[in-house]
Simulated assay, not measured.
Amino acid sequence: MIRSKVALISSVVILSICMCLFFPFPSNVMLEANTIFMSFPIRNQDGYILLGIIGSILFIIAMILLVIGMKKYHVRTIVIVIIVYSLLPNFLITMYQETLASGITAISYDSNGECDFEDAGEDLLNGECNLILHNRSNEAVSFELEFLDSFMEDDVRMGALMNLAGPYRITIESNHKKSIHLKKLLDLSEVPNHINGGTSSNVHIKIIDGDKTRTL
């Protein structure tokens, strides 16, 4: 079944390097990307990302070496490796957060938050956001929460408008998943070319504790 141990070991080493290049912790390094291959950001609003392109090439080389190293079951092996490669980072992060992490490094976010905005009059907007954060540590964690605009929104401020009514101080008890609901009346009189309404899905956030920050 194994044709070349050298090719297989080389494939594993290269895949490990690829995973380390853009490991999504403590901050999610993929947020600014608008073109992605596997776990590699290829392009963002500033142009192509050289390291992401190099990582993509290395990943393809690793797959080729994997095929070279196997006598048969090529397709099946590639599919299994891709699935494991996609799931392993989240598994490792969860293991770390539940065992060694403390403070904001123990906070996880599924990125499924949503913000809705409705016109409330001239230069006024009703903003309402819902998201779920999980404290995986054995101690309560307190931090400030900020909203970030999506890098896909082409300079249109939406999610970050909620910061006009901030900062938001959040405390999550140990080993607790907290549903956060924020509803604020936003004064946009000093915001040029602002929106009059809309919905922002998969909102990005920043959590801050002193000089420590994480972008999720």
Score class of each variant (00 low, 15 high):
Gly69Ala: 11
Met63Arg: 02
Gly103Tyr: 06
Ser39Cys: 03
Pro24Ala: 01
Ile132Pro: 04
Asn138Ser: 15
Ile132Thr: 15
Ile93Met: 07
Gly103Pro: 08
His204Asp: 05
Leu186Arg: 05
Asn175Tyr: 13
Asn34His: 09
Asn44Cys: 04
Tyr168Ser: 04
Asn28Ala: 01
Ser102Ile: 09
Ser189Ile: 04
Ile132His: 05
Leu66Arg: 09
Ile207Gly: 03
Glu32Ile: 04
Thr105Asn: 15
Arg169Thr: 10
Cys129Thr: 04
Val13Asp: 09
Glu32Asn: 10
Phe147Val: 01
Glu114Lys: 15
Ile61Val: 15
Val191Asp: 02
Met38Val: 10
Gln45Lys: 14
Asp155Leu: 06
Ser137Gln: 06
Leu131His: 02
Leu186Ala: 06
Ile60His: 00
Ile93Ser: 01
Cys129Gln: 07
Leu88Met: 10
Glu118Val: 13
Pro89Gly: 04
Ile180Cys: 12
Thr215Glu: 07
Arg43Trp: 07
Asp211Lys: 09
Glu146Pro: 00
Asn130Asp: 12
Ala33Lys: 03
Gly113Glu: 01
Phe40Asp: 01
Arg136Gln: 07
Thr215Ser: 14
Leu65Arg: 07
Tyr96His: 11
Leu15Asn: 01
Glu32Phe: 02
Val141Tyr: 05
Gly159His: 09
Met1Tyr: 09
Leu216Cys: 03
Phe22His: 10
Ala160Tyr: 08
Phe25Cys: 09
Asn138Leu: 13
Asp209Lys: 09
Ala140Thr: 12
Ser179Gln: 11
Glu118Pro: 06
Ser16Ala: 15
His176Asn: 15
Asp211Gln: 08
Thr105Trp: 08
Leu92Glu: 07
Leu21Asn: 01
Ile170Thr: 06
Glu114Gly: 01
Glu190Thr: 13
His74Asp: 07
Thr171Tyr: 10
Ser27Thr: 13
Glu128Pro: 05
Ile64Trp: 00
